[in-house]
Every structure is written in C-alpha cells, then in structure tokens.
C-alpha cells in the first residue's frame, strides 16, 4: 500500500514535468515574448523599445533555456524556463500582469470556490443517485421511460441556459435571492443558494442516466439472482446488494473530481460574480494574463493527479477485492 502510494507519487513527477514542458512550449516557444508584448501593446505602432520595456518589466527579457551571460548557476536559473516554469514546482507562482501576487490571490479565492463547489458536489451526488435508484427500482415501467426521456432532454439543454434562465426567473422575476455577488460569513448563504441549485440541476440529466445504466448492469448480474433466491424483497436486493456494488464505479468516478473542486466553476462563478478561482481564471483568460493561466494549469494538473491517487485509494475502501501493490 505504502509502496504503491510512493510509486504513484514518483510517477506524478514526469507527468508534471510533461505538463510544464507543454505549457512552456505553448507560451514561450510557439508565441515568443515579443509576440505577447506586441499583442498586449497593440499590434500596430509598436516600437522595439516599448517591447523591450514591456518584457523587462515582467521578466520576459531573459533567454529561454540557457543564459550565457550570467554567472555560475545563474546560467540556468536566470532564464525564462527556470523563473516562469520550474518555480511552479515549489508553488511559487510569481506575479500577475497587474502586479498582484498570484499565490496570495489563489489562497484568497479558494474559499468562495469551495463554498459553491462542495455543496453542489455533495447535493448533486445525492440527488442523482436517488433519482437513478428510483428509475432502477421502477425499471421497464412508464415512470422509468419518461424519467429517461426527461434525462435526455435535460442533458440536451445548454448549461448556459440553466444559468441564464435560473438567474432570470429566480432573481429577476421572483426576486428571491440576489442576482449576483458574494459576502463572507453567514450572509454567503443567500448568494450561494442559486448557484448551487443551478449546478445541481444542470448535472441531473447526464448523471442520472449514467448511474441508472450502472444500476441496471448490476441488477442483471448473477449474485442478484442469488439474493432473490434467498427470498429477499426487491428493496432489500436493491439497497443491500445492488447499491453496494454499484457504488464502486459511482464513488470512484466521483472521487476523481474532488480535488478539482478547488478550481471552482468557471461559468457559475463568473455569472454570479463570485470571487473564486473559476472567475479568476476567466478574468485572466479575457485579460490574456498568461502568468495566471499558467499557474492555474499547473495547479489543475497537480489536483488531477491527486484525484487519480485518491480514486485508487478509495477503491480499497469500497471494494474488498482491491489490494494496491
């Protein structure tokens, strides 16, 4: 078990290096700092001096990989690759284009992101599993049929529609909760209610349908017939036998996204003006602030790898057959 975790952590290193190389290539080789400067300063009427100044201010005036003019270790460290990419490994993100410290900003914004993502995740899981169980219990009836039709219809609706429609109806027409914004403390509930609700509703269609398929697959297995042969009621079969087995793919599928909850939701946060990491990312994309995007890419990969590891570990908890070696 321990050996397994250590091996997985070691395996994360080449992956993170790969991620870093990829982003480095995208950001500094495909588009050179000169391109970026020209982009930021406006394409026409740009003097070389202005470009130089822009690059110097942001530390893009160094060589990419090897600095021949520097001394000693500086040959390696005083390069763009080292300063902009390698430092990410120690979670040193540097500064955004507006001069703010990215690390500090991330720590500040994590809270609001989690405040939406965690309740939405838990509530969503609960609601969809319940619906799926309901459909599985009433399988091959009209309830099941129309339930599936509803699911397909709901998953065909754009998430933008849920957000815009929900915001319009609940906030603007019914005036139930504020249309957007965020406040700390107990007050947050008012602001969080709608975004959480919308993210749950938007996910119902596809998840319910998927979980229903998992349940039906389990119901078709031999051990279910054995359980029925014992004289157990259909309820007991579903809850004692089927649910426990079906939870293995469902939970382990859900666990992988838990770490990514930190990243927040891009759409919801920006629509509702919640100062989380999702809206931070969107703002950075719109402002073309590469330093922030790069940092978020790195954090995202770290969290994804953590999610994979958590998934494997959660297998050992829910499935007695799995022993990690």
């Amino acid at each position: 078990m321990l050996a397994y975790i250590i091996r997985r952590l070691l395996y994360a290193i080449p992956i993170l290096i790969g991620v870093n190389l990829l982003t480095f290539t995208l950001f500094f080789v495909v588009n050179t700092p000169d391109d970026m400067a020209r982009m930021q300063l406006g394409i026409k009427r740009v003097t070389p001096e202005a470009i130089q100044k822009w690059k110097a201010e942001r530390g893009y005036d160094k060589p990419l990989l090897y600095n021949g003019t520097a001394e000693g270790a500086g040959k390696i460290t005083r390069t763009i690759f080292f300063e902009k990419s390698v430092k990410l490994f120690v979670f040193d993100f540097g500064r955004a284009d507006d001069g703010r410290d990215i690390g500090h900003e991330i720590r500040m914004r994590m809270g609001p992101s989690l405040a939406i993502a965690v309740p939405a995740f838990i509530l969503g899981l609960f609601v969809t599993i319940s619906f799926a169980l309901l459909l599985a219990f009433f399988r091959a009836t009209y309830l099941d049929f129309w339930g599936v039709v509803m699911c397909v219809a709901m998953m065909s609706i754009s998430s933008l529609f849920y957000i815009i429609g929900g915001q319009y109806l609940v906030s603007k027409v019914w005036h139930l909760v504020p249309i957007s914004g965020y406040a700390g403390g107990l007050d947050a509930g008012r602001f969080l209610l709608l975004p959480v609700l919308i993210s749950v509703v938007a996910g119902i269609g596809s998840s319910t349908r998927w979980y229903r398929t998992i349940f039906l697959e389990e119901i078709g297995k031999d051990y279910v017939r054995t359980a029925r042969a014992k004289g157990l009621s259909e309820m007991a079969v579903l809850f004692r036998h089927v649910l426990k087995n079906a939870m293995i793919p469902i939970l382990t599928g859900a666990v992988v996204v838990i770490p990514l909850l930190f990243m927040g939701s891009l759409l919801i946060e920006s629509f509702f003006g919640i100062p989380g990491l999702g809206s931070y990312t969107i703002d950075a994309i719109n402002a073309q602030d590469f330093a922030v995007v790069r940092s978020m890419v790195f954090i995202g990969s770290v969290l994804y790898i953590a999610g994979l590891l958590l998934t494997d570990l959660s297998y050992t908890l829910v499935d007695p057959r799995v022993r990690l070696q």
Binding site: Y223, T226, H241, K244, R321
Partner: peptide, 9 residues
C-alpha cells in the same frame, strides 16, 4: 464465482 455478492463477506 459470479453467484456470490463480491462486496459482502
């Protein structure tokens, strides 16, 4: 092999 529930003792 398949007639017993794999996750119950």
């Amino acid at each position: 092999a398949t007639s017993l529930n794999p996750v119950l003792s």
